[in-house]
Amino acid sequence: MIPITHFLAVSACIFCIGLYAVISKRNAIMILVGIELMINAAILNLVAFGRYDKADYGGQVFALFAIVLAAAAVAVGLSIILMTYRKYKTINPDQITDLRD
């Protein structure tokens, strides 16, 4: 039996990778990818903790929900990026500074 700690460690790693991507990448797509990674890390945790809810499988259910929602969010995100690209000809968030003072 694989102890829960291993799941959590993997999840933390994925989360960190995602976080890194979100903070440091200069490409909106890559940031989106990072967000997805972070969501996936969370999903992994949900699944891992799901073993303590064997009666309802609440973990797995939440994970499914999250996957669906993440897919929808990615779709929305990608479309925003696309629109942004059309307007600014770039998807580097640093260069989009219209709201800056």
Binding site: V22, I23, S24, I31, P93, D94, T97, L99, R100, D101
Partner: peptide, 9 residues
């Protein structure tokens, strides 16, 4: 500075 990434960080 209005950079989301920074805020995030």
């Amino acid at each position: 500075n209005g950079r989301l990434q920074n805020y995030m960080g």
